[in-house]
Design a protein around this nucleic acid. Structure first.
Length: 478
DNA sequence: TGAAATGTTGGGGCG
DNA sequence: ACGCCCCAACATTTC
């Protein structure tokens, strides 16, 4: 048994992107070193005020998850204080108001969070309150995986090999129940702000298909368990729905990444190895942003900062709306717009298309995904976009350009996924579903889909666009 | 976790 | 029987 000394009389656990009680290391560390604990969550206006969509799915997801969290804590006799305002001010105020000796939270690595946490930390230090930042969100952080020379890895495969040499540290779980006596309920006004209070519209339909909270994460994992052994084979086919769908839970911490790791190594199979690989990719991109913060603004490979993108706003808009005339691209974008989620294969295809066919700056696409994806995470999103744009570390070389028609044929042979999100192509035969502009006017009549009227004509010619991308990249390299 | 251009091979049609 | 051409099918290289 860990017999860590009690160091603090009262501690505050500040939840951020770890909205769970199960296997939460900030809670565990706080309990081990304190006699009394309570909890805080802040709806941070610094983030919320910038959201233009007042029925933002993420805010809804968080709100419902926080509500469940509050209930779980209350059941054990504890108290989750939920505030609305600026975290940089509130955390200090609450810590002072409740006379805590320490604040515990899970480490966050993206530049916005690092800046915020620095401000909070400085304020707390002035109040003589300790700050304990705990590794919780990733399996391996910061400088845990380094080359023999002590440098950060910039290529995935050697990073992965080094990562796998030593299993990650998985501390024993504790439950709140076994530490009930440490939970503290100040019996203050215990309501939490409603979505309306914070200026958001209450729109339950925006969470259709999502299950927030720890309970939702458990349900999601339960569904995935049966398909994990064939994950390597099936994950690339968007019509099959055989991905884990756990990303949003990982994003907001309604499940612990260590729980997922345990699942990945429980039964060895090609599927579970591919799944573990994805968890390692996630660590990898966190590491990249941590060690090379310039990637959030610029290309990882400096020579590609010279790229000159024409950034045609008409083409960009067509892409955003899913009206490029390329069915597979449009299906992906419409899935994103309608559901807040996009299958990973489609993230690659649509990203490649925006950059290499429409010649729009990858940052524009990165920002659009950031607005729309419910599972948006800076490091993974940035890593993915730089990979597709060939500007990233270990990205695909610039001359590897996806052909949207071939990708479509390969990964959505019968157009099942396409037809789900592009209903105007519903009656188009499989033969034409990947490139409907090739239909004769007679076939367009049969399939009730007149190109340029019911469904857009292709906004670019892939072959020409590809050649132009090659010359753009070639001249940037110099 | 590409795709296109180019090169090579071999079978079949044909004079 | 033979050379020639065509063109899949596959392999290699190039971007």
């Amino acid at each position: 048994m860990g017999s860590t000394k009690i160091k603090y009389n009262r501690s505050l656990v500040w939840f951020r992107r770890d909205l769970r009680v199960d296997d939460n290391l900030a809670i565990k560390r706080a309990i081990e070193s304190s006699s009394q604990i309570y909890f805080l969550f802040v709806f941070d206006r610094q983030i919320l005020d910038r959201l233009s969509d007042k029925s933002d799915r993420r805010v809804h997801f968080i709100w419902h998850s926080v509500r469940e969290l509050k209930e779980l804590i209350k059941k054990q006799g504890g108290f989750l204080n939920v505030e609305y305002g600026f975290a940089t001010e509130i955390v200090g105020l609450i810590a002072k108001k409740f006379s805590v000796n320490a604040v515990f939270y899970g480490e966050d690595y993206d530049p916005f969070s690092v800046r915020r946490d620095k401000i909070v930390r400085d304020k707390l230090e002035k109040l003589a309150i300790d700050v304990v930042s705990v590794k919780d969100h990733v399996l391996k952080e910061k400088s845990e995986v380094m080359t023999a020379k002590g440098l950060p890895y910039t290529v995935f495969t050697p990073y992965k090999n080094a990562w796998l040499k030593k299993p990650p540290c998985i501390p024993r779980r504790i439950t709140l129940d076994e530490h009930r006596q440490k939970l503290y309920d100040p019996r203050v006004n215990s309501d939490m702000p409603s979505l309306k209070d914070m200026g958001f519209s209450e729109d339950p339909s925006c969470l259709d298909g999502y299950f927030p909270g720890e309970s939702g994460a458990k349900k999601t994992i339960l569904n995935f368990k049966d398909t994990i052994s064939s994950y390597n084979l099936n994950r690339n086919y968007p019509a099959l729905n055989q991905t884990s769908r756990i990303s949003v839970h990982l994003r907001f911490g309604t499940i612990s990444v260590r729980t997922l790791y345990r699942l990945a190594i429980k039964i060895k199979s090609p599927g579970s190895e591919a799944w573990l690989n994805e968890l390692i990719w996630r660590d990898f991109y966190f590491n990249i942003v941590y060690h090379f913060p310039h990637v959030t603004k610029n290309a990882f490979k400096k020579q590609y900062d010279n790229l000159i993108f024409p950034n045609c706003s008409v083409l960009f808009k067509a892409w955003c709306q899913g009206r490029t005339g390329f069915p597979i691209v449009d299906a992906g974008m419409r899935q994103l717009n309608e559901t807040g989620y996009m299958h990973n294969r489609l993230r690659m295809i649509t990203a490649s298309f925006l950059v290499k066919d429409l010649h729009v700056d990858w940052r524009w696409g990165e920002r659009y995904f950031a607005e729309k994806l419910i599972d948006y995470d800076l490091s993974a999103n940035n890593g993915g976009w730089q990979w597709a744009a060939s500007t990233g570390c270990d990205s695909q070389p610039y001359f590897r350009i996806f052909n949207p028609v071939l990708q479509s044929k390969r990964f959505d042979k019968d157009g099942v996924y396409i037809k789900k999100f592009v209903p105007e192509l519903k009656h188009v035969a499989s033969k034409y579903i990947h490139a409907p502009w090739l239909m004769s006017s007679e076939d367009q009549g049969y399939s009730d889909c007149k190109i340029g009227y019911d469904y857009p004509s292709p906004v670019v010619n892939h072959d020409e666009a590809r050649r132009k991308a090659l010359s753009m990249y070639k001249s940037a390299k110099i």
